[in-house]
């Protein structure tokens, strides 16, 4: 078993475990704002899996595009979480910035 095979397998298992943790967090958390944190985590699992395929296949058609897919998911995930949070606050309060000063002053 070569080094790249071992490295790819470790990256693959770690990526899958990260994604399973994201699903676990999504299911276990009660508040929607707590659940939102796990969208970003799932993206990093996808990035690790993309890197594992790149390590296995080296720079090729599939290696490049799985890295690109993992990078897209890892980078857009946090932006999506932020956008979704603003939308939820706008839905609940009419304006997402409403009440932020009071929340910041709370201990």
């Amino acid at each position: 078993m070569s080094f790249s095979h071992v490295a790819a397998t470790i990256l693959l298992v770690t990526g899958v475990v990260l994604e399973l943790f994201a699903v676990l967090g999504l299911v276990v958390m009660r508040d929607v704002y707590d659940r939102l944190h796990y969208v970003g985590l799932a993206g990093y699992g996808a990035l690790l899996i993309g890197i594992s395929i790149l390590v296995r296949e080296s720079w090729s058609l599939i290696g490049d595009k799985t890295l690109a897919t993992g990078a897209v998911l890892a980078l857009i995930g946090p932006v999506l979480v932020h956008t979704t949070t603003r939308s939820f606050r706008t839905r609940e309060r009419g304006d997402w910035a409403d009440g932020i000063e009071q929340e910041l002053e709370q201990p």
């Binding site: 990526g15 994604e19 994201a22 699903v23 999504l26 929607v32 659940r35 939102l36 796990y38 969208v39 799932a42 993206g43 699992g45 996808a46 899996i49 993309g50 395929i53 296995r56 296949e57 599939i62 799985t66 897919t69 993992g70 998911l73 995930g77 999506l80 979480v81 979704t84």
Partner: peptide, 20 residues
């Protein structure tokens, strides 16, 4: 909606793995 976002990541990851 949050679950849909996580599912999008899971599904594209599964497609990556299947192609490999």
């Amino acid at each position: 909606l949050v679950a849909l976002e996580v599912t999008g990541t899971l599904a594209s990851t599964a497609l990556m793995l299947l192609s490999e």
